[in-house]
Design a protein around this nucleic acid. Structure first.
Lengths: 233, 233
DNA sequence: GATCCAAACCAATCCAATATTGGTTGAACA
DNA sequence: TGTTCAACCAATATTGGATTGGTTTGGATC
């Protein structure tokens, strides 16, 4: 017998199941009873019921998921709607790569559209990172700098994506221990790199801004991978 | 006394609190001890501590949330929750610009990492768009093509951002009616443009892929702005 | 009488333990 | 063989209790 064909009893269970679906009163979300209950209700073994459910799922009539249950209709599209779900499937290195792809282009756009006020704010953030007394403060201002650049791109959707990526970064990095010196050293690589980025933006040098941001993030990436104990930027 | 002014003891507590923040070792997430503990540690009443915390929160130094706790820094923004809020503040042109910034870079990355299977799927999608009998079908396969390219970049966070942007696109375009001819004309601009993108990816031509994607999206953008009644791609 | 404080209460949130649920395996059995 | 049943597994849901910022209250203090 071919793998695809069904035994006569299977066919019987499938039709029985179809009848049940047509008649049964299902809750709002279209969920049907757990297999254990349903098999008893229909008077068939769970094994047999599962085979029948399998055919119906192959037909697209129902969909199932462990821990959730079995539902009529088609499986909702998996559009990473959930941040935590996303965070579980990725890692810091991947997030870093994503930043490396996105942020240079954001910086490029910012070079075109940044307002004087925004540039001034970037300078301010830059100064604050230098004065930071702790890594925490440093990171706050560093993040604020990067976000100001994203704001300067004058594009709401893009800013939304930036925020999303950052939320993801926090979710993924979470639990990472910070061994650490007390504060960033005065010759920390980021200072000069930040400077280069903001300079390029101020000069309306789009390619320069993108390149500077890329350089910066590459350094951050290297630090992240080499000595994971240190915050990267 | 004005509502805004502080008593002398309040001022004292605020400075005491500032000192504490500067000196204290905070956990990774910047959370500070619960009010009940902190008030005892600082030797002030909870009422007074709360007033001081209120001042600091007004200054933007900290943020608080019931059940969560009190944290230093600025309140995080959760983008996923309010996609609709995001959609309300933007418009199709801005979303298009965001795509124009993101997708070429995604295509560039895809040129480097796409698997033969993924390239085959791109070809399949491409063929399906040509055979589409309705605009709806066309759009389905077009979207699938673009998403396959995003998948080919082999980067979960990036794919998440792509999905987010697409969800946003749907939310913004929503309600826009599609007048339109019954189906895409056989010489629709996208066919050749899609071809160029997939070709470049197959040839591992990163710059070519990015350029082809940019060209494609520019055409889409032009169509979107000119005759908004037609679906762009 | 006006403040201030401690305690109690409230609702949102977190957290850990427990229960469900689809998926899988293996032994018993026909 | 092929079926059934029970046990187990991992993902998810659910539940109850503990935390935590926010609010109210009654009494103490000056």
């Amino acid at each position: 017998m071919s793998i695809l064909s069904e035994t006569s009893s299977d066919r019987g269970t499938v039709t029985q199941l179809r009848a049940y679906l047509a008649q049964a009163e299902l809750p709002d979300d279209g969920r049907l009873p757990p297999e254990r209950d349903l098999s008893e209700a229909l008077g068939v073994s769970r094994t047999e019921l599962r085979k029948a459910l399998g055919t119906l799922e192959a037909e697209g009539q129902i969909w199932r998921h462990v821990g959730k249950g079995t539902f009529v209709g088609s499986r909702p599209i998996d559009t990473f709607a959930d941040l935590t779900a996303l965070a579980r499937r990725t890692n810091p290195a991947e997030v870093m790569r994503a930043r490396l792809i996105m942020e240079p282009e954001i910086a490029r756009a910012a070079a075109l559209t940044a307002t004087p006020m925004q540039i001034a704010e970037m300078r301010a953030c830059q100064a604050r990172t230098r004065e930071a007394a702790t890594w925490r403060q440093y990171e706050n201002w560093d993040h604020r700098l990067h976000r100001t650049i994203a704001e300067a791109a004058q594009n709401i959707p893009l800013l939304g994506l930036f925020d999303t990526l950052n939320a993801l970064r926090r979710a993924v990095t979470w639990g990472r221990l910070r061994s650490n010196p007390v504060k960033p050293s005065p010759d920390h690589h980021s200072f000069a790199e930040h400077q280069a980025i903001v300079d390029a933006i101020e000069n309306r040098d789009m390619n320069g801004a993108a390149a500077a941001m890329r350089t910066h993030l590459r350094t951050v990436e290297r630090n992240l991978l080499d000595r994971q104990t240190l915050p990267g930027e």
